[in-house]
Amino acid sequence: MHSPPLRQPPANWRTWLSRRRGRVLAGAAIALAGLLLLLRDGALLLADLPPPARMALVGGCWAAAATAAGTLPILLSHNFSQRSYDAALGLGGGIMLAATSFSLVLPALAASRAGGAGAIDASLTVGGGILLGMALVMLLGHLVQSDRVLQDANARAPQAMTRAWLFVAAVAIHNLPEGVAIGVGYGGVDAAKAHTLATGIAIQDIPEGLVVALALRAVGYGRAFSALLGAVSGLVEPLGAVAGALLIEASTAFLPWGLAGAAGAMLYVICHDVVPEAQRHGHCNTAAGSLVVGFIVMMVLDTALS
């Protein structure tokens, strides 16, 4: 006996929402009430934060806003060339690479030496922190397999929306080290260096937001929905920034490890995600040239203007 065929999915997610308008409105009302409570609690918490954590929160919010800004081309343009997409990825990768070198690894070595470590001990400490940061992101990455959750886009709408949120969760895991790096910078590095690091990460987040929105758009999600989830993927950065700043505020002994851990996490993301994705469609020269340009831009920001 054959099982009955599944009901055909709606043409798009707007149709699916319109058929469940009552449930959607009730859920929206509950979500709005929860958001208002979170905003109230957040305002109370913000008043109690130490100054470095407050500055880190602002830097993290700028990074999240840059991620949201990166999704705007999805709303404004019907076509976005693959070469431009790969160039934007390469540019972001270069910025992250320079930020890792000049804003994280070198300050981590200096902080370790300032804490009394010798040259060899400082190098080993920073190397260990880099490995720990890489291992943490690898562990978190196993929680959500982002390369699988966008497959089979023709499944029923509720399942497709679930996969979309899983994809955003996977991207948010990769954004977390950037937020932590901002927070660690404000917690222990001088303010000028921290501002430069936050600026570089925010610049890098613009193409990153575009990447998320384009990936969702490519498998059939609506323009507005893709842009919305692309913006949501950056909201983890303010949380990571505050956590990083509070960690360093608790003890300056964590500073070399925090800086090195953020560097290791970002290095892993560059090697595992950014560079392979930028070169996957054959535009290797474009991606590599953009990466070098991004590296130079961040190097100038970090060494000449700070």
Rank of each mutant, 00 (worst) to 15 (best):
G183H: 10
G188Y: 10
G188H: 13
V189G: 12
A192H: 12
A192M: 12
H195N: 12
T196V: 05
L197W: 07
T199S: 14
T199K: 02
T199E: 03
Q204P: 10
Q204S: 15
Q204A: 15
L210G: 14
L210T: 06
V211H: 00
A215M: 11
R217H: 01
A224Q: 05
S226Q: 01
S226P: 01
A227W: 01
L228R: 02
G230H: 02
G234K: 05
G234T: 05
L235Y: 04
G240I: 04
V242T: 09
G244I: 02
G244Y: 05
A245P: 12
L247F: 04
L247Y: 01
E249Y: 08
A250W: 14
T252V: 09
L255T: 04
W257S: 15
G264R: 12
A265S: 15
A265R: 13
M266L: 14
L267P: 14
V269D: 11
I270P: 12
I270L: 11
H272G: 05
V274F: 02
P276T: 02
P276S: 03
R280P: 01
G282K: 06
C284A: 07
N285D: 03
A288E: 06
A288S: 06
G289M: 06
S290W: 08
L291H: 14
L291E: 15
V292Q: 03
